[in-house]
Design a protein around this nucleic acid. Structure first.
Lengths: 203, 203
DNA sequence: ACCAAAAATCAACAACATGTTCAATAACTG
DNA sequence: CAGTTATTGAACATGTTGTTGATTTTTGGT
């Protein structure tokens, strides 16, 4: 399998049109005010064509989501073996972690879909997947070995706290139009790693 | 207005039935696989009765959400004037902040609705409202006066980071069945206030 | 206990969405 | 170019939506 199983141009064109139609309509009306009819009208496709490729609206949506999650898992692999000490080294030199730059680069690449799917007209199931995919691994590296084995109730909340925190950073970046560069975001993420709420910000 | 404008028992009963029907069906099928028909069947009401009180499914949902947010704003008022020093004082005595206990008490009171609305079959618009209502104020108190005035880009991400972090704690508590008591949760929330990711947990 | 007011019920309605099928047409691959 | 395959357009039964009108039941106040 050299490239995707869909070598036919017509299929790729239809799926691409449905992708952008879904994004546009999610932004305009919200996911559950979008019908298969609407999607096909916007994509300029016959309704039968939709059902040729997807079972229903949710099938289209989750297919797109699955692609993103799969890509992210692939990027995550770069992070295997990263230690807190590495992070400290990069941080003191004010160098962004390459892995984080790649991550934000990819998120920007998918910016239009991510903005729609995490926004108020989006899909509630996606953000937890994004969190678990991106942030859970990250926190696992952070977490001291001691606590990784036998999680006390508090450790669970500790993980939820920081995993969701980084999800919030990503979502805020997406929501506000991704103004910062990937390098800037990497540095922000690294900087937040060394801060606690109960002390004033060190600039 | 001594009590709610709906003094009529029939109205209260209908709305109560629709509330629980909505919660049940959100858990079972997810919000957008629930029709007004389903709601009325489950609530054992005529469909006309639904339209007597609500314009559509979303109207019912947002009405319930608005009530919760309004209640939370009221609880938040207790926090006005709380300083970081107060927090330190309570923390060293291992006493839970009364305001936080009240907050978690109220969240438990609404546990069934919150579990449904923040879960995978819920409403994507609710969590941000919960975050802004509960956590934003909290972070504003934390944030040093210096940064409250002229927010640099980093301060924005700093706020997003911690506000979303506390949202994650609340959501994890709700999702896992609210096993911890309100006092325990208050202590966990306070403890997280003095931790940063880049250091091992102090038990 | 009664009565007037108000809510719930039942039936019917047009407009639209759904998922499927079919024959006909168009576009693509090798 | 020829065979394959996707797209189109039309039709279908089924279900949802929001509204309306007439009828029955429940309620709150006197």
């Amino acid at each position: 399998m050299p490239e995707s199983a869909n070598t036919d141009r017509r299929i790729a064109r239809s799926k691409r049109a449905l992708r952008t139609a879904l994004i546009e309509l999610m932004e305009e009306r919200g996911l559950d005010n979008v019908s298969v009819n609407d999607l096909c009208a916007r994509a300029d496709l016959n309704r039968g064509t939709f059902y040729n490729h997807f079972h229903d609206k949710d099938d289209l949506l989750t297919t797109l989501e699955d692609e993103i999650i799969a890509d992210l898992e692939r990027i995550q692999d770069q992070m295997k073996g990263l230690t807190v000490m590495d992070l400290v080294r990069y941080r003191t030199r004010k160098q962004p972690l390459p892995f984080l730059v790649d991550l934000f680069d990819y998120l920007r690449e998918q910016g239009d879909f991510l903005h729609a799917v995490t926004g108020p007209g989006g899909d509630i199931r996606f953000a937890p997947r994004l969190r678990d995919s991106v942030c859970a691994n990250l926190i696992q590296s952070i977490l001291h070995e001691r606590y990784r084995e036998n999680p006390t109730p508090f450790v669970e909340y500790y993980v939820a706290f920081f995993a969701t925190a980084y999800l919030g950073v990503i979502e805020h970046w997406i929501e506000t139009g991704m103004k910062e560069s990937s390098e800037e975001m990497a540095l922000i993420a690294m900087r937040l790693f060394f801060i606690k709420p109960g002390e004033s910000i060190t600039l």
